[in-house]
Structures are given as structure tokens and as C-alpha cells.
Design a protein around this nucleic acid. Sequence first.
DNA 1: AGATATTTTTAGGTTCGTCTAAAAATTGTC
DNA 2: GACAATTTTTAGACGAACCTAAAAATATCT
Lengths: 222, 222
Amino acid sequence: MTISLTEENYLKAIYTLSHLFEESEVSTNQISDHLKNKAATVTDMLKRLAEKKLINYIPYQGVKLTEKGKRTAIKVIRKHRLWEVFLVDKLKFKWDEVHEIAEQLEHINSDELIQRLDEFLGKPKFDPHGDPIPDANGQLNSVKALPLNQHKAKGTFIFVGVNEHSKAFLQHLTSIGLKIGDAIKVEEINEFDNSFKVKINKNNSQFFSNKVASNILVEIKK
Amino acid sequence: MTISLTEENYLKAIYTLSHLFEESEVSTNQISDHLKNKAATVTDMLKRLAEKKLINYIPYQGVKLTEKGKRTAIKVIRKHRLWEVFLVDKLKFKWDEVHEIAEQLEHINSDELIQRLDEFLGKPKFDPHGDPIPDANGQLNSVKALPLNQHKAKGTFIFVGVNEHSKAFLQHLTSIGLKIGDAIKVEEINEFDNSFKVKINKNNSQFFSNKVASNILVEIKK
DNA sequence: AGATATTTTTAGGTTCGTCTAAAAATTGTC
DNA sequence: GACAATTTTTAGACGAACCTAAAAATATCT
Ligand SMILES: [Mn+2]
Ligand SMILES: [Mn+2]
Ligand SMILES: [Mn+2]
Ligand SMILES: [Mn+2]
């Protein structure tokens, strides 16, 4: 049984949405919003995926990946993130330029290729955006990092990933000089608008709006 | 106007066939044999490609690529061969393992990606099978090499490419220890069956059947 | 609970890329 | 030049992946 490119994209969407909202059931409208397809189109596809035992689907009740569906989704995510590492590390693309190309490359079908690519890249654990790369068995370390704005006290943090992957946001971070792994020292938290006065790597102070702070994932610096 | 994966494969097939038979017009049946589709299916597609001005199509008279169609075909071939170089040089695949994966990768759509891949690989001129890689402007050095069996005299040759790309044939060449760039010294040509007694890189003598000799492309060693 | 709003499914339609069977055009043979 | 063989096209059908419009189910509000 073969899984089409379109089916792979639906499985990935269901996987992503179920983790995004921390609910096991994903709704038709959530999928239709995410993939920018009409709800009727999604219903069609859900029937086909259920037929193939990739999801459990009860009409009107939403949808859940089966083990097989989950394995497939994670494999696509693994490929996406490995290719992003390749594009940034080897081909010197910027981190805001790789997502669309990886959306294509993630559907290339060859187990041998993934395995060799993984080795070629040095079995990376994270992609250029700080997202964890599932291992060959589909094991994925869930990220324990929190958005900066959920830390209510001053202190020094390490920037480990982003919550928002848009080109505009990634370019904004680049323009303010923030890269994965940088230290962020919070000097002040502004009560009024929840903005943050911070220092990146001991450079000059600058301000993060709450919106920026909410999309920056950090760990507490040890 | 966007060109689908399927359309790209038809354009590539037409390009390849027109060069294979050195005829400008390619027939419906040639395409249908090559792509293993039914002739009726091919006719349907030819109408669509003509509609898009990618081919000149006169019913019953065969088909020819337009400039635009030719440019597209050559770009797909360029991508195919660059990816094959990547797979062999960087990921250490064997030359008989890369074609199927390249058949998928050749459809990835990103000019920036091709350009960077080309640079990453050191702007290679030939793929792992000795086929020339079109440059970024679509220029392609036609191969002047001839099959070994068309040389009717003894002498020393350089193995520069293959006429037949099947896994079986490539593995056979590997098993007899023949690689691109090797010197082949023809010591005898057997009149009876047109087989060749040869030495590869000054190793022990061995025999090439005419069939093998006809699929090995060589240049005369200077 | 009943009315209203929202979500989801069903019904019916389109395009792409494939097929089979039959008709038409071209090519080869005597 | 007529007949036969081959090639190519047309006609009609189908599945995948999309759509719009309408109906049905579920959720929300007073
Ligand atoms: Mn991405
Ligand atoms: Mn990423
Ligand atoms: Mn190939
Ligand atoms: Mn090749």
C-alpha cells in the first residue's frame, strides 16, 4: 500500500495539530484551515485515510492518527527537518529560506537516502529552527523549552527555538541579531505591555515586544 | 504557467527519444513504449503539452519540442544528473543505486537550490555514468565518444560512459572491475563473434562480449 | 428547552492522468 | 492501386484531489 504526497501532507497536518492544541482529536475545520483546503475536501480525504487505516475517524467527532499513521507522519517530519539541516549547513541557505524547499524534499521516498543523509549531516538532533529531529525509530524528544514571555522573572536564558516559523519573523530575529544558541539576559520586564528589556550575548540592550517574546523558546541558562 | 511532474517526464522522454534516434520527430508509440503508458494516454498528454506551447504537435505526424519545451527538458536532465553526483560523491551511493532516487529529486522546483547544489558539488561536468551535465544556461556538450565495438582496430581507450543504464549492466561492469576513467587496452578483436580481448588498467586480460562492448563508450587514449 | 449559529457531511461538478475499445489515418505489400 | 497491417486518435470511463451549494448534525445562547 502506497501513501501519496497529498496523504502524507494530511497525516503531517493531523500530527502537528494534535500536538499544537494538546488534544488527541483533531477537527475537520482545523485541518481545513491548516492546509487551506475546503472542509468538504477534508472530509473526502478523511474517509480515504480511514479506509487505509491511517486514522481513526468517527463522523462529526474528529480524527486521530493510528500507530501506522503516526509513524508515517513522524517520518515525513524527520525528512523535512533533515533536509532543512542539509540546506542550511551544506548549501548555506538562510534559516528563513529553507521551509518551502523542505516541503518538497520531505516527500522523496527512499529509506536508504534518509539514513545516508542523516549520517552525512552528523546525525543532527535539531533542525535550523531548533525543532527536534525524530530518530530513525521515530523517537522524538519533546521540547521542554518555554516561550520567553512565560518566564516572569529576570535571569539569563538560552535561545533554543521558535514558536512561529514565518519568513517575516525569522528575518526579524536575524535583523536584531538573534541566533539559536545565543544567551538572552532579561534585565527588565515592563508591567504595562509585558515587553522585555534584554541583552543578547552581552551586546547593547534592546526591547522585545511581548509578541516577539511569546515566539522565542528559551531554556534557563545553567 | 506551471508544469506538472508528469508533464516534465513527458518532455524529458521526448527530448531523450529525439536524441536517441537522431530524428527531430518523435512518435506517439515511441513515447508510450518509453514511459510504459498506453498510446491513447500519450495522445491526451500531447494535446495538453501543445496547448501549453511546450511541443509542436501535428496529429499523426509526431511531435517536436518547442524552445520552451526543450529548455524545460534540459533543466530536468540537469537536475537529475546533479542529484546523481550528490548521491554518489557525497552520500556514497553506488552508481547503480542512484537513478530511481534521482527520478524523484529531478522534480524538486527551486532555481536557487540547483544553483547552490551545483556549486556545492564543484560544478561537475559529468554525472556518475559519464553523461554530460547541462550548464545553468542549458548548454550541453554532446558526447563525442563512441561505443567500444565501433572501433575496429586495436589500441588503448578511456572508458568515459555507458550506453545502457540498467542496474544489471552497471553491476556487471563493477563486477569486472571497470570504472569511469579506466584505460581499456584492446588486445584482440575476435572476427567470429566480435568479442574483445582487453586489459583494464594493465590488469589480467579478459573478454568483453560484443553486447558489453556496444554499451561501453570510449575515447581514444591520447 | 427552543431557536440560532457553527461545524461537518453529502451531493454533484471539474481537472489531471490514466485506462479499454473502437474508429480513423497512415504505411506496407502484392 | 487496392487490401492488410500498423499506428494513432477518438470516445467513454475511472480514481484522486480539489471545488461550491445545500443538508444534516452538533454546539451555543437566552
Ligand atoms: Mn520547515
Ligand atoms: Mn524547521
Ligand atoms: Mn539516471
Ligand atoms: Mn546518470
